[in-house]
Design a protein around this nucleic acid. Sequence first.
DNA 1: ACGCCGTATGTGAACGGTCACATCGGGCTG
DNA 2: CAGCCCGATGTGACCGTTCACATACGGCGT
Lengths: 338, 338
Amino acid sequence: MPSDPTRNRAPSIRDVARLAGVSYQTVSRVLNDSPNLREETKLRVQQVMDDLQYRPNRAARMLVTSRSRTIGIISASSFQYGPASSITAIEQAARAEGYFVNTVNLDGSDRESIERALNHLLDQAIEGLVVIAPQVRVFDTFTQMNLSVPFVTLQSTGTSDHALSVDQIAGARLATRHLIELGHRNIYHLAGPQDWIEAEARMHGFLTEMSEHDVAATAPILGDWTAEFGYFAGRELLRVRDFTAIFSSNDQMALGLMHAIRDAGLDIPGDISIVGFDDIPEARHFWPPLTTVRQDFGELGRRAIELLLNGGGPLGGESPSGIIPELIVRESTGPSRF
Amino acid sequence: MPSDPTRNRAPSIRDVARLAGVSYQTVSRVLNDSPNLREETKLRVQQVMDDLQYRPNRAARMLVTSRSRTIGIISASSFQYGPASSITAIEQAARAEGYFVNTVNLDGSDRESIERALNHLLDQAIEGLVVIAPQVRVFDTFTQMNLSVPFVTLQSTGTSDHALSVDQIAGARLATRHLIELGHRNIYHLAGPQDWIEAEARMHGFLTEMSEHDVAATAPILGDWTAEFGYFAGRELLRVRDFTAIFSSNDQMALGLMHAIRDAGLDIPGDISIVGFDDIPEARHFWPPLTTVRQDFGELGRRAIELLLNGGGPLGGESPSGIIPELIVRESTGPSRF
DNA sequence: ACGCCGTATGTGAACGGTCACATCGGGCTG
DNA sequence: CAGCCCGATGTGACCGTTCACATACGGCGT
């Protein structure tokens, strides 16, 4: 670990130059394939580079150009399906534009860990930032910080310039309407943590749709996204059982919910209908296969890069932030028996 | 995007020096809190740093020290539960040691994408590398490459120095033995892709345990880890139905399997027992709750960093690679009726 | 009072690239 | 054939930091 002081450094542009019998500037030119280079010289230099296994020193390059060609991603809970998919899409889109991506995971939502993550990325001289840490608090921190790098927040409410998201409200309304049209009137909503922007938006969509159909809504239950929570919430809810359907804010909680309902000896959708959100790949293999709202995370990631690289300025044309999700009807929902 | 040429660069060590009325070297000393600094000077410099919102330029620092304090992670399919958990653990462990972490996702298992990922990390001058891309091919590529950075491979067979893994073979044997002890004699194994080291190890564990108990084993089915595949494999398998139990190489495929079995009107575990592998958080809420093998991915990640930073040399003492997984018995397995 | 030592600070050179500019031929134009 | 321009290459400076070394200064032993 305490690096050997005598170890020889990697070959530099000048080493290559010497061996190729040209000046270091010519080597630099080959690197940046600038015009006005004789083909022969170019080949010779490239040959030497290969021989030496030369690789340009990014630190040096960054130092002088103060450009890093790197985009940072700050992500909370990247083990979740949504964030993970977006990350993958972002990486691909960025690579296509010749950018690198550095991802760093938030280990908490407190200001300190946010700053640590941000500092790490800023140290890398990132030229753009994608935030997939969808807590309100995180979002606020970023907007307050008025940082100098352009950034995009995924999964936000869409109120800010930096916002880019699947239209959570529309998705939630889709799910809710589906239940109402099936005749359900006593519908619960199992929401995500209240400090998550997405959770808030879905809750909002639920409430709006309910009131537009003049269906009275009870206060949503605030969960933590886990199947575990869904299970315990389900158990509690079933002690009274004054509902025929539940709209869960994500698929995992829906899974836990279904577990609890089965434990109570009830049938899905016979007794109770369940709708999830996200359409994780497993959802269609749940028992019963879960009716849910599909989000195109890939598209989201791609657009994030587009927005970032086009400077967020006068964008192409149509709605920059609205990706409309899709309701996937499977077997966890059915008509209300009442 | 085409950076404004007139934009002023960030404040440098010399700007700080000038304002603090000291030389740049003194500022550098404050940065590296070296001894022999008058407390007063130190404070004054720090004050100026705060005022200027100065942040050291990592590129410059790296250039001269040729140290980056960064560890790279190359990960395939990081959306899976296992890899994602390991990554989180690695990040935390690395941070505790004062290292940064850069994760890059492989977008394929072909040599080209491996090299691209590796090049990206090498460009960052990483000082260590953790590979969580558990395909044989990837592993081979890395060993062939004889790269100059120390590296650790997670989830490998344990044959190499760089190997570090949960003992997949032991885990698979645990699962298999459980089924045998329940009286099952016709057991299928739904394996992972053959080019994954883990999949191979689990398959090996399965076969070994079977033969040690003198139970004849049919050739494993090679899957792709997805629930979708599990579902279709289940459907195929049920056309003959010459088995009473299946050991699935991961939980997702087990889920698909159970879906198919239910579709056929059969009972789990009444008619068929299922064992999974990984114990993803959702597994205990499947229907029925899944018997599976739990792996401590967090521990794995932590050990990876330890191994890397201790130079992989003469290690502490006991088995460096063996983390023994644990069988979690739930309700998807029961005695054989035959 | 001299030299010496240790503490606190300053100076010059490097790290490995890019940029702006200078140089050097050769072919074209007039 | 002079003059010019352009294509191909070389030279010096600089990016922001650390390293090795030099310097200034006060106290202390003799």
